[in-house]
């Protein structure tokens, strides 16, 4: 009988499961070494950003490791925001290079913000490799409380 021994079939599937999980693990390791993990590539040519809407203002957070405030430029017009930067290559003199991964030194990224911001009152600061920008909304785009009569 072909499927006489269910235990054998069960065992076969068990083995497949095991193989599957082993392969997953191998592929994960592989992706990690090459930096292919789609969620966590740091090899992007532009810094990753987060944008939060805090009612009265927007807050943009960007990852800019190795950039000091002199290395960054921010331009704003209406709801258009442009952040650019150039990182000095920090290879010390007289050293030979064994490994270079932090290659990106120049970037430009532009955004369309959800609403107009008051460019005169924008504050930006760099700390610990994060660029934080506080972008106050213009009067017209601020949230308004409507009283029900």
């Amino acid at each position: 009988m072909m499927f006489g021994n269910w235990k054998d079939i069960d065992r076969m599937f068990g083995t497949l499961d095991l193989l599957n999980s082993r392969m997953d693990r191998v592929m994960n390791e592989f992706n990690k070494t090459l930096g292919y993990d789609p969620n966590w590539t740091v090899t992007d040519s532009v810094p990753r950003t987060n944008l939060y809407d805090k009612g009265e203002h927007f807050e943009i957070l960007a990852e800019v490791p190795g950039f000091s405030k002199e290395d960054l430029n921010v331009k704003i017009q209406g709801n258009y925001l442009e952040v650019s930067g150039t990182r000095k290559i920090d290879a010390p003199e007289g050293y030979c290079c064994l490994r270079t991964e932090r290659g990106t030194t120049t970037f430009l990224r532009s955004f369309t913000l959800p609403s107009d911001v008051d460019s005169a009152r924008v504050e930006a600061m760099v700390e610990n490799g994060f660029l934080t920008m506080r972008l106050p909304k213009t009067e017209a785009s601020k949230p308004k409380q409507i009283t029900i009569s």
């Binding site: 990690k32 930096g35 969620n39 966590w40 740091v42 090899t43 920090d90 290879a91 010390p92 007289g94 050293y95 030979c96 290079c97 064994l98 490994r99 270079t100 991964e101 932090r102």
Partner: peptide, 13 residues
């Protein structure tokens, strides 16, 4: 928390 490998440069003198 997801674990990420930071990018590194290595120099030697």
């Amino acid at each position: 928390i997801p674990k990420v490998r930071p990018l590194v440069d290595i120099y030697e003198c």
